[in-house]
Amino acid sequence: MGQIILGVGDFGASNQAGEVVKTFALGSCVSVIMLDPKTRTIGMVHVALPDSSINKVKAHEKPGYFADTGIPVLLQQMTRFGCHKRGKGMVVKLCGGANVMDTNDTFKIGKRNALAIKKILWSFGMGAVSEDLGGNFSRTVTISVETGQVTLSSPGRPNWQL
């Protein structure tokens, strides 16, 4: 079975029924998942930080790294599979954005990522239908292109679906 493995700041999409799209161990990073029922395409971007203004060079090299550049680049990628360029009809899911215990405001990177992502999605008229955000644990995400099923796993916990 083919696998598209996405590292930090990577994005990708597939419409191959046998494939899975996967990203490992999201901590404060947030994975934005787009499922297009019309073209049966699955896309994902692994966002690490909210705002690309801190490093324009990095944003150019790896646009998926930041929320503000990552969502447009994922949408662009999805259009290659015939999806609508502003995401019309797409189902969006979010997961990740964890925190350490007793976090203070400075360390709420996961929360800032999630907020930034939601803002950008709103600017495209999109919103998440389901999300699994926050908490104090890491998440590995596996999406089956054939069924669109999103499976999450974390060491020491039973798997769950989103």
Binding site: A25, S28, A98, S138, P155
Partner: peptide, 13 residues
């Protein structure tokens, strides 16, 4: 740990 590089089940705990 926040960057996704913990050592398994204890990450962020």
């Amino acid at each position: 740990m926040l960057g996704g590089f913990g050592t398994g089940s204890d990450s962020m705990q």
